[in-house]
Design a protein around this nucleic acid. Structure first.
Lengths: 104, 104
DNA sequence: CCGACACATAAGCATACACTTATGTGTCGC
DNA sequence: GCGACACATAAGTGTATGCTTATGTGTCGG
């Protein structure tokens, strides 16, 4: 069950902050620590959890490891959410429209 | 931070099962226990967590309490997910289209 | 009223998890 | 090669969490 890993990963506030940072572009583990008062091993462990959940993926570059958002994780949340579409309020449908328009 | 409560609530497999059951229609606490081998207090506690997260809402009916999916919770996940739209893969966009069409 | 029922809350306990420090692995410049 | 650096892993620890049993609250039928 992938969903379990995804929701568990996102349940932690630090990991959500990391994920949000990565949404702005790929960063290496050290850069991700900026602003967050967290030890290096802690960040490494958080990144491992996010990666195991399929939310981020890594790309080794020399002695740096660049992390970026993994679209597959986003897709998993999207498909999960779609199962509850019957309960989507009108404003979410409207949001979907807006986003689609922006895509043009 | 509402998101924290939402993701924490959905991180538990039992609570996700409960939520999925409710997606099929409103049920009372006892009915929700069917199939899940869980004690009555455990279910009560899970429902409290889901309610605190804004994922479900209750409606007292006599000595029964009917629970149903709360669209507000769904909306919260939707808006959170929208922030990462840049990483939505093509198939999610396609899914959004499909869902919108089904709505007609 | 009073017993039965549906559910919530309290208290205690075992496990999961997020953190720490210490150490390991791999890459770079000199 | 060797020290410095970027990151991962190991081991230990405090706290959060999900479970249990016991009890409380509120509603119904007789």
């Amino acid at each position: 069950m992938i969903e379990a890993d995804i929701f568990k990963a996102l349940a932690d506030p630090t990991r959500r902050k990391v994920f949000e940072k990565l949404a702005g572009g790929s960063l290496n583990a050290s850069a991700l620590r900026d602003g967050l008062e967290i030890s290096q091993p802690a960040m490494s462990q958080h990144l491992a959890v996010l990666r195991a959940a399929g939310l981020v993926r890594e790309q080794r570059q020399g002695r740096f490891v660049n992390y970026e958002v993994d679209p597959d994780g986003i897709a998993s949340i999207g498909t999960w959410l779609a199962r509850y579409r019957a309960y989507w309020p009108k404003r979410i449908e409207a949001l979907a429209d807006l986003l689609k328009d922006m895509d043009q």
